[in-house]
Amino acid sequence: MDLLSQKTPLSQRRPFISSLMATIALLVPWLATSVAWATPQAAAAAKTAPAFNGALWTFYIFGALTIAGALLTITRRNPVTAALWLVFTLFATAGVYLSLHATFMAAIQVLVYAGAIMVLFMFVVMMVGNTERQEFGIMRGLFSKVVALGAIALLGWRLISLLMRQAPAKAAMVSDGYGSVHSMGGVLFREYLFPFEAISVLLLVAIVGAVVISRRSTEEKEEV
């Protein structure tokens, strides 16, 4: 079976990326405690404005890491390296969620996205191997690329200006249990029970579909 025996060249950067991820994993609990200090309740209890805005600094740090990771994801030549940088980006996104007091979503982001979905990606990357010959294809269809990038730039400008205009000037105060498993369960199993069940059926259909699509047909099996 030559699909699996294909060698994927080992990237030199992987130890560097994994050490970065370990640093983030150590950083998250510390910053999470700063977020807890920065809740309005804590500030009201102290009767003073917190000198260190933990949530904002968590947002700055992880926002910068998110953008850097996304840039590296879309520019890396080796798909394995790109996938690892995507994992890094998803971890950083979880940090951003923490700064927004969405603790349960941050945990789900790490477990489901950086865990389950990226393992799926890594499986396929390892199976297909590094077969990319022509990297960005910049010179091929240069005109259409320029038009597409111009359209993306225009869309980005409109998107950012629109979102900035829509943004409420002041964020609402949040209660103590905001973003916890308890409040999330309340919303999911009361207000959104039907969509929740529909999503589970969708996942089942997707699993069956994935098995059917990726299965070998019977005549191929006989050849092997």
């Binding site: 879309i74 798909p79 990319e132 294809g137 910049i138 980005g156 950012i160």
Partner: peptide, 30 residues
Amino acid sequence: MVPTGYVLVLAAVLFLLGLVGVVLRRNVII
């Protein structure tokens, strides 16, 4: 507390970086 505008700009930048990747890259996995 984080101003909502900052979050939305970060989200828009993330979305656009993904869009640039979809347009520029040739590898289906990426």
